[in-house]
């Protein structure tokens, strides 16, 4: 229940920001309603993923919850501050839902796997990095000289490579053969 509520709350906040979408009032309402529906669907996926222990549903639900930030972009409330807050909220949702998932799978899980010091350090680091991103991006609005298709491709390849390397590091045969 808790992951559902948190996911719905994140989506609801984004939907609220979408009410300021410029144009007709009907358009803004449509963005609000659609985002709200999307957030409910996302919350349903997260909740279902936790209950049935399906990773795909869980990850899909989290991505869809993150995608509701599009309404904030449409409402022109986007920027480093709201993106940073949304990112931390998504991380909290992920941590909560994975904790619930462990309990669903009856895995021996220690309660409160993240001590408050760790959580505080994570939030502080994220705030620092968010600040750096905000400085580098200079406010965040698209500026002339936007990235070309080639740079998009290169960025995708680089990100995929980094993530693949990190995953391989985690999945690699790290077992001690002496055991």
């Amino acid at each position: 229940m808790a992951p559902f509520l948190v996911a719905a709350a994140i989506g609801g906040a984004n939907a609220w920001a979408g009410l300021d979408t410029p144009g007709t009032a009907g358009g803004a309402t449509a963005v609000f309603v659609l985002t709200l529906l999307a957030s409910l669907v996302a919350a349903g996926f997260v909740s279902s993923g936790v209950r049935t222990a399906k990773r795909r549903d869980l990850i899909g639900g989290l991505l869809l919850t993150g995608a509701t930030y599009a309404a904030t972009v449409a409402g022109h409330h986007d920027g480093p501050l709201t993106a940073g807050l949304a990112g931390v909220a998504l991380l909290g949702l992920a941590h909560l839902s994975h904790g619930e998932l462990d309990r669903t799978q009856e895995l021996p899980t220690a309660p409160g796997a993240w001590p408050w010091r760790v959580t505080l350090a994570l939030v502080a680091t994220c705030a620092l990095l968010d600040g750096l991103v905000a400085l580098v991006s200079g406010g965040g609005r698209p500026r002339p000289g936007s990235p070309s298709a080639l740079s998009v491709l290169v960025a995708c390849v680089v990100v995929t490579a980094v993530v693949t390397a990190l995953t391989a590091l985690a999945e690699g045969a790290g077992d001690d053969p002496s055991l």
């Binding site: 920027g79 990112g87 998504l90 992920a94 680091t125 991006s137 990235p147 740079s151 998009v152």
Partner: peptide, 21 residues
């Protein structure tokens, strides 16, 4: 990258920090 809004990286930044740490 696709939407040309660099701050959107911040949505995944906390996860990247968790991943690296």
């Amino acid at each position: 990258v696709v939407l040309q809004r660099p701050y959107l990286v911040e949505l995944g930044l906390p996860f990247l920090v968790v991943l690296v740490v």
